[in-house]
Amino acid sequence: MAKNTWWKAALAIAAFIALWWFIAEVSHNRYFPTPLDTVKAFWDLMISPKTYNHIWLTFYRTIIGLLLGSTIGIILGISTKYSEFMDTIVRVIIYPLFQSFPPICWALVFVLWFGLSNVTPILTIMTVVAPFFMINIWEGMKDIDDTLIEMASTYTNKRFRILRKVILPMLYPYFFDASKSGVMTAWKAVILGELYGSIAGMGYMLNMAFKAYHMSQVFAWTMFFVIILVIFDKVFFNFIERKFVRKWKTVKSF
């Protein structure tokens, strides 16, 4: 960030907090905590070791769900290149279905099927992120430079090697885009999955706080949630983008 945008950002945040405080004070509603109440609740959570168990559990579920969802999405996306049939299935049935089905419905369906367990949030994430990977990889497959595949085929008949050495590298930028939106979405979906389908984790704690009318705690959990998301976006993905992806994207094939 450039120097002179720092204070602009700080000013914007200060203004936001001031406005929040003002509305909280004026409304004088015990379900609308002030920033101070929220920070206090946040602090209480932060010094409690249990908090980190819940965060870790949520993390763990998100990662497993992401791994499953991305694997399925990538396999389906790539299969469209090798089979007309899969291309049709993916375009006409799988993608529209998964894309339009609300995450909350998956969560509810999985609660009924699998009860309160790890399975429900994990499957919720999986079904929500798979289409991101599928559609991005699918688009990547459409944009693939066939002349490079042809070049590789003059040296070998081993299709798996061509996939690994030539096709997959062409898909990395698409995979990165999918991961980015996938992680964001998974992080939101896991809360839904846990809200209804689990007896631990951040979503569950959010629900508990809500049921106990502890609004400042609801806000505090939300803060945790947002902070982790921002860290992922600004630190992790920015790093990868700067280090790897830009090279891939600016470099066109010749």
Binding site: L148, T156, K158, R161, K247, V251, F254
Partner: peptide, 22 residues
């Protein structure tokens, strides 16, 4: 007619691709 180089590989790695494919 066109070079058909892999843009994410350096020159030497492009030259070595026939080996890597096998």
């Amino acid at each position: 007619q066109e070079p058909r180089l892999l843009p994410w590989r350096t020159t030497i790695d492009n030259v070595l691709i026939p080996f890597e494919l096998n």
